[in-house]
Amino acid sequence: MIIKVISIIVLPLIALIIGFFFLGLSRKVIARIHRRYGPPISQPLIDVIKLINQESISHGKLFDMGVILSLAGSVILVLFIPFGGIAPLATSGDLLVIIYLMLLAPLGVALSGGEAANPNVSIGISRKMMLALGYEVPFLFSLLAVMTWYKTTSLVEVVKAQQSFLWAIFYLPLPAVAYFMILPAMLGIRPFDIVSAPQEIASGTAVEYGGRYLALTTIQHAFHIFIDIALFVNLFLGGGNLLTFFVKMLVVFLLGLFINAVFPRLRIDQAIKYCWKWPAILALVGLIIARII
């Protein structure tokens, strides 16, 4: 029980540190791919500290509550996803709960941005929703493939089954590839950053955010990166202990980052069509295979 409570407190902190490390790393790595020197890895942290100390504007109660809901929803997701075998709340919710809890963060941002009454926000939300509709198809296919293959909806069971023998990526390569292909879309980074395109719609949902709102959004983004990648590692790469889990996450993140660094941005309809074409077909074939065998 005490261990559980401690892990509930510590796990989000670890996730936060890893998330910020990834955020900083992404800026550094992308800079190096662009042949720049790049900021220090601690730069996202500096930014957040600056933002917390900066004044901001508020459009109303919902504007505040939405951001809080968004971050809180992301924080509790960490507790449901096993990190190196530690998942204090895995008995309270399975993969289905995780899929639904992933809703809270975008819902919070959307509500908060909606009250801001800026059309750029509305466009950003509508694009985010459409993109989500796009990537949910392959995402759900690959999740269902894993759940059908292991005949369970519990993420812990999935990880356990993989650790006793081969990783799921060897049984279900196609859903894994499909999941990896849509990972940038889930994280909202290039080539799928049309949602928050700064040049077109002035960074979309974040257009009215400044100061602490932006700080919370950045923290939420750090959690989000952690969650999506940890989910991939758990589903397909067999989890692992704390160290191997982190190494696997790093590998997946870097692979995704290389794609991020070299691709231009897709238009929203191109993004939807892309998501519904190759990743969806791959994941569907994987699901059919998993269902038949």
């Binding site: 100390n53 504007i57 809080i68 602490r212």
Partner: peptide, 10 residues
């Protein structure tokens, strides 16, 4: 965290 950081202007 939200309420301890710098205040916002309505």
């Amino acid at each position: 965290i939200f309420s301890l950081s710098a205040k916002s202007r309505r």
